[in-house]
């Protein structure tokens, strides 16, 4: 008997995910535990199964996307395609390349392109008591204050020697630290002792951090126009939104203080954010 499909929800979209491998199905259920919601009809269906040659096949809507020797080998492709499927048709939220955490009841948006260090900084913040929303995709809704929801997938940390994130993990060598075939490591936030939620959380701080080796902490306040510009640089569903999301991004920027941060020590950023939470 095959496990039931998971209905994974984010914003106003949902996809269905089924895996015939029981161990992997359990891992996927844990991985997306905070994003499961059966109220939304799925617009894409993923299925991981084993073919007659013993290889595992990832299919979307019946079409083969990738094959691999194990189910876990397919996870990077699954995650990439599934995240794209969840965000590509979003029309009621502004979807950003961004991490999101909650620090002392304060929603903190971490905007930036892939490779800017969002996930590593997010891991550091979780190790310092933050609640996890997402390390890659966050949805904002205008309001006063605006709100933030996140796709609470596992943290996806890039390989490095030594790994920048190693000090923040209970034991970097033990499961459930999953090493993927694309060189990333996936970590369930709960394993770090962090709280996890899909939100919504009140958005209180917009940050645009960039990791730079050998740069001391540099924090620059952004004007609302600069903040809106930075938001729009990281907006991924502009084509689905009225006026490409410009007025909504401007509204968010009017209500939330924003900063551009360059850092080489994530712990210094964590301490600064905690200080901001006391001020706000």
């Amino acid at each position: 008997m095959n496990p039931s499909p998971l209905l994974i929800h984010f914003g106003d979209q949902a996809v269905s995910l089924q895996c015939d491998d029981l161990e992997m199905a359990a891992y996927l259920a844990e991985m997306f535990r905070h994003s499961l919601d059966g109220r939304y009809p799925p617009h894409a269906t993923y299925h991981i199964s084993q073919n007659d040659h013993g290889r595992f096949v990832l299919r979307r809507d019946g079409h083969s996307l990738q094959t691999g020797p194990t189910a876990v080998a397919l996870l990077p492709w699954l995650m990439q395609d599934l995240v794209s499927a969840l965000i590509e048709a979003q029309a009621n939220h502004l979807i950003f390349h961004a991490g999101g955490v909650i620090v002392d009841e304060m929603g903190v948006f971490l905007g930036g392109p892939t490779g800017s260090g969002k996930s590593t900084l997010t891991a550091c913040l979780l190790a310092n008591g933050a609640t996890y929303l997402s390390d890659e995709v966050a949805a904002l809704s205008p309001g006063d204050p605006p709100t933030m929801t996140g796709l609470a997938r596992p943290l996806v940390l890039k390989e490095a020697l030594p790994p920048a994130w190693a000090p923040w993990l209970p034991d970097p060598t033990s499961p459930p630290l999953a090493a993927m075939t694309d060189g990333t490591h996936w970590i369930l936030p709960a394993w770090m002792g962090a709280g996890v939620t899909a939100g919504p959380a009140p958005l209180r701080l917009l940050l645009f951090p960039t990791y730079r080796a050998d740069v001391s902490l540099d924090i620059r306040p952004l004007t609302p126009a600069e903040a809106a510009f930075h938001l729009l640089q990281n907006l991924v569903n502009a084509r689905n939104l009225p006026d490409k999301g410009v007025s909504s991004a401007a509204n968010i920027a009017r209500h939330v203080p924003a900063y551009q941060i360059a850092y080489d020590e994530a712990t210094a950023v964590a301490a600064w954010i905690h200080d901001q939470s006391l001020r706000l």
């Binding site: 004007t223 609302p224 126009a225 510009f229 410009v246 007025s247 920027a253």
Partner: peptide, 9 residues
């Protein structure tokens, strides 16, 4: 055009 605190987008 969006005006934000005297600046423009």
């Amino acid at each position: 055009i969006e005006t934000l605190d005297g600046e423009l987008l």
